[in-house]
């Protein structure tokens, strides 16, 4: 056992896991996180806490993670390279683990251009792959980048995650990038939101044929479409996103008031397909600012009750 987290135990037991996502507030209001926890507790196995996602300043992912854990929800703390150098990163890894964090998702981070502080200086001392490698070294070798050693039993016991985007360009290289993350030491990966199921199947087949799915747990990222407008926006304006016309047409086929329902229906269909794809170990449900719908989605998908190990 690498970290002893709930997520790790369930994945090792071969359960079809479901992870959620929680964005901390743009204030010091802990109650926002506690409120979101209500819709996630018992419905998902672990929850990503975003780290200033889209470069918008929010309560820190460490603080958000701890509040979630106080509410009985296991956190998967996101850590980006945009805002910290190797000194701060290692320090945060040690601190987070000391405070009870057991899962960490290692990301490069969105460029600050997209956020509320585009004038900021960025860091990117490490990239996401080097971050994975660093956390793994700290955990498995009990060593810091400097070579400084930790006494046995004091290493940060973390289950290491990463994000992968099967759809960004160049597509042919994407599976090799997954291989690279595995070589760096990742334990599980969560994918970008998937809408193009055929392309995802092709990606997974490649990964499966290369033996990669035996080395890493792949959680397929899914996000329910709230409306036709959202689907169109995702199709046209979000880099690295592949939304086929089929999704647009399904939403078009229902009246406006029923679009969010249809969005959830599409998602439920996706979950059934994903369950059958070899190498898919679970789903990562990103119901962004729609946490209150998580319980009904998980229930309708037939994924309740959540297993315990």
């Amino acid at each position: 056992m690498k970290s002893g987290s709930n997520l790790e135990k369930l994945l090792n037991a071969g359960e079809f896991v479901i992870t959620g996502e929680c964005g901390p507030p743009r204030s010091a209001d802990a109650s926002v996180v506690r409120e979101k926890a209500k819709y996630l507790k018992g419905y998902v196995d672990s929850v990503n806490v975003t780290d200033n996602q889209t470069s918008v300043v929010r309560m820190s992912s460490l603080a958000g993670s701890l509040i979630l854990q106080e509410e009985g929800v296991e956190a998967n703390m996101q850590m980006v390279c945009r805002d910290r150098n190797r000194i701060a990163i290692q320090s945060d890894v040690l601190g987070a683990t000391a405070l009870g964090i057991r899962n960490m998702l290692c990301l490069s981070g969105d460029h600050q251009k997209f956020g509320d502080h585009p004038e900021a200086k960025n860091v990117f001392d490490l990239d996401s792959i080097q971050l994975i490698q660093t956390v793994k070294m700290m955990r498995d070798e009990g060593k810091l980048i400097s070579g400084q050693e930790m006494a046995e039993g004091t290493e940060p016991r973390l289950f290491i995650g990463a994000a992968v985007n099967p759809f960004a360009d160049p597509f042919e290289y994407r599976v090799y990038r997954l291989a690279k993350k595995i070589a760096a030491g990742v334990d599980f990966v969560q994918t970008q939101c998937i809408y193009n199921m055929d392309k995802f199947k092709e990606y997974m087949k490649q990964a499966h044929d290369m033996g990669l799915t035996e080395k890493v747990h792949v959680l397929a990222g899914i996000t329910p479409m709230k409306s036709l407008g959202m689907a169109r926006y995702m199709q046209k304006s979000v880099p690295g996103m592949d939304v086929p016309d089929e999704i647009i047409n399904r939403l078009k086929g229902v009246e406006k008031g029923g679009q969010s329902k249809e969005g959830i229906n599409i998602l439920l269909d996706q979950i059934q397909i994903l369950k059958e794809i070899p190498g898919v170990a679970g789903v990562h449900l990103m119901a962004i600012e729609w946490e209150e719908r998580v319980p009904e989605i998980v229930e309708a998908a037939g994924l309740l009750p959540r297993p315990t190990v």
């Binding site: 390279c81 490069s108 981070g109 460029h111 990239d127 996401s128 960004a168 290289y173 760096a184 880099p239």
Partner: peptide
């Protein structure tokens, strides 16, 4: 690279262009 990644690309490139611009 806008993020100076040594192990790129990030997930934001589309049609050979950087997400930043």
């Amino acid at each position: 690279c806008s993020k100076s990644l040594l192990n790129g690309p990030c997930g934001g490139s589309a049609d050979g262009k950087c997400e930043v611009d």
